[in-house]
Design a protein around this nucleic acid. Structure first.
Length: 276
DNA sequence: CGTATGATGGCCT
DNA sequence: GGCCATCATACGA
C-alpha cells in the first residue's frame, strides 16, 4: 500500500483497467442499419399518424453530433475534413472529454499496401473498415495499445486519428493515461503527453475494443462536433505516414495530415513542411 | 534534442 | 511463429 491509493480502484486489475468504463456501451449497434439514413423529420407524409412521435426517443443523437453525410467522402478528403473538428467522449458517469483533432492519416483501401485492407483482405478484425462511412475500426496493436479509425467512403478505406488537442476533461484524461502505465513513476503527465499519439488518445478517452464497429454518427458515448469557425484557416501539412516501414512506395506517400505549428501533433515532419 | 530497446499479446499465415 | 498504423524509458550529445 503506497501512495497510489487514490487510483487504486482502477489500476488494481492492471491490464484490464479500461474495464471500468465498459458499462457505457450505449450504442444502438444493431439498430443502426435498420432504418436508412433517410431523414424522417424533414417532411413525413404523416400517413402513419401522430402516434409515431413516441419513437422520437429512439436513436437519441447528441444535438451537435455530426451526421453520416460528413463521413461519406473519400479517405483523403475525410482525413483533411477531420482536422479541427472536436471529438467528444461521454463517460458513463456523464463526464465529457473533448479534444480537437490535429493529426490524421488516410488509408486508401485494397491498393494501399500499408492498409490492413491491402489486397482486399477482409478479416473479422478489420471488418469495420468495410462498413459504412462513420463506422469505427478499433484494433489492438503491439498487444497492449488501441488505435482508433473511422471508415470513410471507399471499400476498405478509413482514417486513423493520431492526435488531439485536449480541450476538456484534462484531469480525467491524465488519470486515465497514468492509470495504465505500469511504471508507477507517479510523475504527472504534461498536457502535451495526453493525446499526442493514436494510442495515447485512446487511453485518454477510454476508447477500447468495445468501440469497434460502432457508428460515430449515432453513438451516445462518442461523437464528433463541428469546430466553431476560427479566425483563420489553419495550414495543413501533408507528410508520410508513421510506423509503416514496410509497404515500399506506399510508405512515402503524403497521406498523413496535421495542423501546421500545432504543439499537439505526435510527429512533426520539418522536411514536409518546407514544401508549400 | 536525438536514437535505441524492451514490453506484450491478438491476429494472420 | 512472426509480425506489428506504439509507447515509455534509458542514455548520449
Amino acid at each position: 500500500m503506497t501512495a497510489r491509493g487514490a487510483a487504486q480502484l482502477s489500476c488494481r486489475t492492471g491490464q484490464k483497467r479500461q474495464r471500468v468504463l465498459d458499462a457505457d456501451r450505449e450504442s444502438p449497434r444493431g439498430r443502426a442499419q435498420t432504418p436508412s439514413p433517410g431523414e424522417p423529420c424533414l417532411g413525413p407524409p404523416a400517413t402513419l399518424g401522430p402516434r409515431r412521435s413516441i419513437y422520437f426517443s429512439g436513436p437519441k443523437r447528441h444535438s451537435a453530433q455530426l451526421g453520416s453525410d460528413f463521413f461519406d467522402q473519400p479517405a483523403v478528403a475525410l482525413a483533411r475534413a477531420f482536422l479541427g473538428q472536436v471529438l467528444v467522449r461521454r463517460l458513463d458517469d456523464g463526464t465529457e472529454l473533448r479534444g480537437r483533432i490535429v493529426e490524421t492519416e488516410a488509408y486508401l483501401g485494397p491498393e494501399d499496401e500499408a492498409a490492413h485492407s491491402r489486397g482486399g483482405r477482409q478479416t473479422p478484425r478489420n471488418r469495420g473498415m468495410f462498413m459504412k462511412p462513420g463506422t469505427l475500426y478499433v484494433y489492438i496493436i503491439y498487444g497492449m495499445y488501441f488505435c482508433l479509425n473511422v471508415s470513410s467512403q471507399g471499400d476498405g478505406a478509413c482514417v486513423l486519428l493520431r492526435a488531439l488537442e485536449p480541450l476538456g476533461g484534462l484531469e480525467i484524461m491524465r488519470q486515465l493515461r497514468s492509470t495504465l502505465r505500469k511504471g508507477t513513476t507517479g510523475r504527472a503527465l504534461k498536457d502535451r503527453e495526453l493525446c499526442s499519439g493514436p494510442s495515447k488518445l485512446c487511453q485518454a478517452l477510454a476508447i477500447d475494443k468495445s468501440f469497434d464497429q460502432r457508428d460515430l454518427a449515432e453513438d451516445r458515448a462518442v461523437w464528433l462536433e463541428r469546430s466553431p469557425p476560427g479566425p483563420s484557416e489553419p495550414a495543413v501539412v501533408a507528410a508520410a505516414r508513421v510506423g509503416i516501414g514496410h509497404a515500399g512506395e506506399w510508405a512515402q506517400k503524403p497521406l498523413r495530415f496535421y495542423l501546421r505549428g500545432s504543439p499537439w501533433v505526435s510527429v512533426v515532419d520539418r522536411a514536409a513542411e518546407q514544401n508549400a
